[in-house]
């Protein structure tokens, strides 16, 4: 069963083609890492797939009514915005909005989802703190928890681990891998190819709006692909502690 299916998705901005005929299908239990240099179209791909950008081609998600889409896919944008000094718990509870009928208060099911998200992101001690007074990395974890609380089959996040400390980067990637093992799917854009190689089940590589490679990390992070798309050489070995990927030198 596929959760998201894109066919020939194209986004034009002015005369520039930000996304050029991307087709891909995401099934159940996949942790998809979206990789590519700055401006490759990672954000555009995810926003167009969610129907947040006008695009040609089709996206099964964008075709859904707004309310139904919100119960299938959660989205954490790259811009980390918490406009008001609400408590961490209040911010995370916002993720339950799509499940609540108008005017209803959160029920037991909602509380359970909020608590589970708080535990997953290790935010138990932060519950009553004011979200806007946290550090950037802490705010990112709150926003990831908010999207987790939405409790959707598909979880999409735009550079969620940027700005996190190493321990929380690894922990967060493990949360995404866990979600995939539990039968959900994750699409996450990231620049840390080492973490992508270790924790994603599948990588989608973009360059200049085009999909250039799609498959298991070992098939996507080949020497040619990494050199051609990112312009770097890399060390990539499978070690007893799992795959290790380390960019080494700039080649151009």
């Amino acid at each position: 069963m596929s959760l998201l299916s894109l066919t020939d998705l194209t986004v034009r901005r002015g005369t520039r083609t930000a996304l050029d005929g991307v087709s891909l299908t995401v099934g159940v239990g996949e942790c998809v890492g979206l990789i590519g240099p700055n401006g490759a179209g990672k954000t555009t791909l995810m926003r167009a797939a969610l129907g947040l950008l006008p695009a040609t081609g089709t996206s099964t998600l964008a075709a859904l009514p707004l309310a139904e889409r919100a119960r299938i896919a959660a989205w954490m944008p790259q811009t980390r915005e918490i406009a008001w000094p609400v408590s961490v718990e209040t911010a995370i509870a916002l993720g339950r909005l799509p499940h609540l009928p108008r005017g209803a208060r959160p029920g037991a099911l909602d509380r359970a989802a909020i608590d589970a998200a708080i535990v997953r992101m290790e935010l138990e001690d932060y519950r009553t703190r004011t979200a806007t007074r946290l550090s950037g990395g802490e705010q990112a974890r709150v926003l990831i928890a908010r999207a987790l609380a939405q409790d959707t089959p598909l979880f999409m996040a735009d550079e969620p681990i940027a700005g996190l400390d190493p321990a929380h980067q690894i922990a967060t990637m493990k949360v995404f891998a866990d979600l995939a093992r539990e039968g959900r799917s994750v699409i996450v854009s990231l620049h840390d190819l080492g973490l992508a190689a270790r924790h994603c089940t599948r990588l989608v590589m973009l360059q200049a709006g085009r999909l250039v490679a799609d498959g298991p990390p070992a098939e996507v992070l080949t020497r040619e692909n990494v050199e051609r798309v990112f312009g770097v050489t890399a060390y990539y070995e499978t070690t007893p502690q799992g795959p290790v990927f380390q960019p080494m030198e700039v080649v151009r």
Partner: peptide, 13 residues
């Protein structure tokens, strides 16, 4: 929902 920005609010329905 808009507390989290326009994109997030739209994705929340």
């Amino acid at each position: 929902a808009l507390t989290l920005g326009e994109d997030a609010a739209q994705a929340m329905g």
